[in-house]
């Protein structure tokens, strides 16, 4: 059951992601991206991480993509013009595709060298507490707990990252007065 659900959502993600690239209408592309992100969220559920799955759908598929749509509609972007692609670009793209497919093939064939539970982790996933605050669990409470203890610094840095982006947007988009 879980397997077939995984295949269903994975296929949905891939198809939607392909649609994002291929579609000429930006609004349709954004819709495709929402679908792809919902697929990612569903896969988080299947991996026993319901909290991440909910966040994925709430934040990405919900808030971020709605903002995308707003901006696309505000800018009133028309259908992308048909730009002829030179054959060298096509050739280069095909070569890259071949290299990448080869790498994936090599990866799948070398799958017996993938890590096994023995050589990766000796300690089972424990509940977080005072002595091991960042232990792996999937609940919202432990997630919040580790964000404010073990991952305090990354959280703060991410916050300042957003501040910097905001300063940049305000500075760059402000109308320049004639000097």
């Amino acid at each position: 059951m879980v397997d077939s659900l995984f295949y269903f959502f994975a296929a949905m993600m891939l198809a939607a992601a392909l649609f994002v690239v291929v579609s000429r209408n930006p609004v349709n592309s954004a819709m495709g991206m929402i679908l792809a992100l919902v697929g990612v969220g569903a896969n988080f559920f299947l991996l026993d991480a319901p909290f991440l799955g909910v966040l994925q759908i709430l934040v990405y598929a919900g808030a971020v993509m709605v903002l995308f749509l707003f901006i696309i509609m505000l800018l009133d972007v028309d259908q992308a013009a048909k730009i002829p692609v030179p054959w060298t670009t096509v050739l280069f793209g095909l070569v890259l595709l071949a290299v990448f497919s080869g790498a994936v093939w090599w990866l799948v064939n070398g799958a017996d060298a993938l890590p096994t539970p023995e050589n990766v982790s000796a300690t089972p996933a424990a509940l977080p507490g005072a002595e091991n605050p960042g232990a792996f669990t999937s609940g919202a409470k432990s997630f919040g707990y580790s964000l404010f203890t073990k991952y305090m610094l990354p959280v703060q840095i991410a916050g300042f990252l957003l501040l910097i982006a905001m300063i940049g947007v305000v500075t760059l988009s402000k109308k320049q007065k004639q000097a």
């Binding site: 790498a103 090599w106 990866l107 064939n109 070398g110 060298a113 993938l114 890590p115 050589n119």
Partner: peptide, 8 residues
């Protein structure tokens, strides 16, 4: 350092 050389 203890992992085998994997393509990954």
């Amino acid at each position: 350092s203890v992992l085998p050389a994997s393509p990954l």
